[in-house]
Design a binder for these strands. Structure first.
Lengths: 223, 223
DNA sequence: GTTACCAAAATTGGCGCCAATTTAGGATAC
DNA sequence: GTATCCTAAATTGGCGCCAATTTTGGTAAC
């Protein structure tokens, strides 16, 4: 089992326990399969028993941890099929509104997206895993926000968390991260050029993390 | 405020409190805006205080009730824009996999869908609001299941609950319900005829509850 | 040496009490 | 007669204790 000493984060004292546990799962501090003992969490986050139980209940509702009656809670083991299905859903949702995003993009929103893409670049160099993760989240939130559908933004943020360890562990390789950073800028380019088809292709490749986003440049000249 | 007497449902005694409250919200027993006092719920469902609080916390995570600190929980007021956005999301998701559904449909699955559609018809005549609601849910679950994406099935079931009172209250009109029943059968027809475009059109009209199942070329049109 | 059983330690989870905050009603002052 | 303040009732919500179940370690029997 993983070490579970009290880390005494006085700065993070006031934040919600659920978020703290969530962060530690997403950043890989609590690896998949780990049994989350209530006493350990109580000490680790310096909180009370009911707070721990509320957090665990919420996370099990979000399907991030599994609850086994009279046995406890443990972090979900990576499920290849489920991860694939979540990716499929994200591709459907995020490409479906590509035309809306292009339609509603303004110079101001494009500038903001560029800034967020650059911020992600910076976090690649200096920044914790969590800051990096949140920078990525912020970029995609802002991009989706262009669709005008706030529920969609929240929903994607939600299901994105469902494949916890998989994407974060993939980020461990620097090559992968650097390509993600480049793809962010390419998406903003496609948006600026009002290239819907190219944007869709980029989004799909970005989510699937496959290499083939090749013919984006060629189509970009149209419109 | 609504009456909150103990209904003494001995049959439903063993079920989870969360589901019981959820049902009462979805069926309109607890109308939008109602303040859910913990003491009342305790008596109504014959359960303990912690159980009530867990249920309320879960429902507020699902965004079905709103939590106001030191004030309590109340059923979310209907939000037209949000309902519209959820509908848009459902249209995107359910039409996106129409081709997969046609591709994977077998004589057996079509027969099962027919049976579920007929079951919905029956519940139109004899059956409580809840049974009716669940019959509808069962049909759509089975239909979506054809896509092979289990996560998608769960996700749609989830977001379907986010517009609680709106769809159920619309069901109050008999004409609306009867058209829904007819549309179910038409969907199975389209599935059997392997008519992907027609199926998509039907699904969109069914979700949007608009009469025109004619020319819906785009996927996610927004007002 | 291995297996089965029993007991002790640990962990989960149900439940109720009490403090803190809010709300409503009444009394008093203007 | 009305507005304001103050008090009392009601409600929320934090917290800890204890019973029930599981796990683990040791011992004895085969």
């Amino acid at each position: 089992m993983t070490e579970m000493q009290d880390v005494s984060e006085t700065a993070a004292k006031e934040r919600d326990v659920t978020d703290l546990v969530l962060e530690d799962i997403l950043t890989g501090v609590l690896p998949a399969g780990t049994w989350l003992k209530q006493i350990d969490l109580e000490k680790r986050y310096d909180c009370t028993r009911p707070e721990v139980r509320r957090a665990l209940d919420r996370l099990s509702q979000k399907r991030l941890v599994e609850h086994v009656p009279n046995r406890g809670y443990h972090v979900y083991l990576p499920d290849g099929r489920r991860a694939q299905e979540v990716s499929d859903i994200r591709v459907i949702l995020e490409t479906a509104v590509a035309d809306l995003m292009v339609e509603r993009a303004t110079p101001e929103s494009i500038a903001k997206l560029r800034q967020l893409a650059r911020h992600f670049d910076q976090m690649t160099m200096v920044g914790t895993v969590l800051e990096h993760y949140e920078a990525n989240l912020a970029f995609h939130r802002e991009l989706l926000l262009l669709s005008g559908n706030h529920e969609l933004v929240d929903l994607v943020s939600e299901i994105r968390q469902r494949t916890s360890s998989a994407p974060v562990s993939q980020w461990r390789t620097r090559a992968r991260v650097e390509r993600s950073a480049r793809e962010h800028h390419m998406m903003v380019d496609a948006l600026e050029a009002r290239d819907v088809a190219g944007l869709k292709r980029l989004i799909e490749a970005h989510i699937r993390q496959t290499g083939d986003a090749a013919p984006a440049e060629g189509v970009a000249r149209q419109a």
